[in-house]
Write a protein that binds this DNA or RNA. Sequence first.
DNA 1: CATAGCAGAGACAACGTTGTCTCACACCGG
DNA 2: CCGGTGTGAGACAACGTTGTCTCTGCTATG
Lengths: 342, 342
Amino acid sequence: MNERAGIKDVAAMANVSIKTVSRVINGVSTVEPAMRRRVEEAIVALNYVPNTMARSLKTGAGNTVGVVVDSIDDVFFSSLVSAIEDRAITLGLSVIIGSTGFDAGREHAQLLNLASQHVRGVILAPVGNDHTFLEPYRSIMPVVTVDRSVPGLDSVTVDDYAAARDGVARLVARGHRRIALIGYDPRIQTADRRRAAYEDVLTENGIALDPRFVPEVSFESAAATAALKDVLSLADPPTALFLANARHATSVISAMHHLGRTDLAVISFGDFALADAVNPAVSCIDQDPYLIGALAFERLVERFGDTSLEAVDRTVETGFVSRASHLISAPKLTDVLTSERR
Amino acid sequence: MNERAGIKDVAAMANVSIKTVSRVINGVSTVEPAMRRRVEEAIVALNYVPNTMARSLKTGAGNTVGVVVDSIDDVFFSSLVSAIEDRAITLGLSVIIGSTGFDAGREHAQLLNLASQHVRGVILAPVGNDHTFLEPYRSIMPVVTVDRSVPGLDSVTVDDYAAARDGVARLVARGHRRIALIGYDPRIQTADRRRAAYEDVLTENGIALDPRFVPEVSFESAAATAALKDVLSLADPPTALFLANARHATSVISAMHHLGRTDLAVISFGDFALADAVNPAVSCIDQDPYLIGALAFERLVERFGDTSLEAVDRTVETGFVSRASHLISAPKLTDVLTSERR
DNA sequence: CATAGCAGAGACAACGTTGTCTCACACCGG
DNA sequence: CCGGTGTGAGACAACGTTGTCTCTGCTATG
């Protein structure tokens, strides 16, 4: 009773050969109803569960997919993972998750681990910038990246540059010339693209770039809070904030409320719960992580069928959720003064 | 180049026996340095990755743990899963996730799937109420439940009853006699316990129970919003809200702001991002999902060592995060009027 | 009535790995 | 110089399953 029943135990109990049990399990039609019945009874009597590992070993086809993201405890990724799991279950696939914590080494380890598990495929939010080590596994373990891309791999992303341009431009249109970008992390590709958009819009509008307005923040929420305080204590503090991602955005919004500094114009890249309930309500560039996850999974499944497809970069539309926070205008006087000073 | 290299390919390239490669991989010390070097070179040359499934098949010891929760896209569980994954990786274990979507059938399927994968153990937020089917797997696949408990299984929970009593009592202390409970779902054990606490406090204070104040809500956020509107449109609407879980709480808070009904006293069971930034800031009963996940994993690992331990129910302390929303007093006149009416 | 054909069931090998056993060899002490 | 000992490496079986082949016995057909 202590050891798990195997197929041979079932066969012994039903007085048939092992192979016949295998046939019953796999729904092969050429089994006499009487035998099938006996086998099925033995299966329930013994609480037999087929050993997936042995099966996969024999057939070569695993039945798991891997998902590797920055952190599971992040609204963006938990929604994305959720989409993948919802779909995987309909195909009888299990989902193995791993987080990178923004560490390229850990990412590498996670991917190697997934390779050793013979996953059918991987959905990855890449951190590291060298993924050549995946090359030998490409045909056996397809990889679709999400949120960020890697040359040669399928990706499902968002047009960060365009969306961020749009957001920053809206702040500029309200007269802001001192705009801080909170949430920049040089390890993350999207952060770079959003920063580039930010810088381009500013220079196109004749606004000098100030590196102090683009503090580097690590992924902890405390880092964003500290960055906000730093930036606000400058001699020429910003009058508007562009928040580079939803995770940091919630921290910053909290901190703004604690500091009583809700006079700053704000746009967040990524919507989040209660963005509509704070005052002023936070305007957001809206991406759909659930959709991104769903499309990535869909693409992965396509690759199951044909391993030699060309890599495709798929872009998901973003929206702009117009609430109140981006409508706050720059204080006229200060604005003029500082633009002259520069 | 297309097929994955196996141990025998490595052995052939290094001109040693398969077993020697196995020894090198497993760090057995009795291998000549020269041979070890040759093997290691072959391993990198062939991009060899050991096949975990074959290994587990032989050794019997899997290297994965399963996690089954209501939904991954839920701040409570994503944090909990995150704790598990952080710890699992340090032990070289992979994490397979599955969600139930509050469906007992799906839960059953997920658990059977995990059994077939020969996971080392499972951390489960139970939905169904019959888990006897786990009995035969108990010794081989230990199960630790979280958030809710199942008789005979280890659990890591919170004292829902006491914490909810405390919360509701605070509202009563502010003079509220018409308190709605939003977020009740009969499928969830914790919801029942919180409801019981709510009812007990009310009756102890001589307040009649009104079933219309305890609407049943499904897990979608829209359900909570609808329930709020229903309750507010009653002839005698509540003056205070006890929100039974963080997921529904965010929806309700959003809705309250949209409706301009921030005059209601509120306490949420479970803290959430921006609870401190909305106005009034939402007072919360604080549970620590990350800690719950960590303790559950710790317990699971204990069971790896000794499969015959007694089941232990561990309770994690809750806190009360006192902000502003629970301090709103009941409007005196109305309160008196209605209490007379009843 | 004889035989080809087919359906149903079993025997056996194999998937990639590791545990156990055996073997070869070098080294040491008597 | 010989036997015992220990160390390093290989042969073989096995984990639980499925694919392939084979065998048996029945049915249908000429």
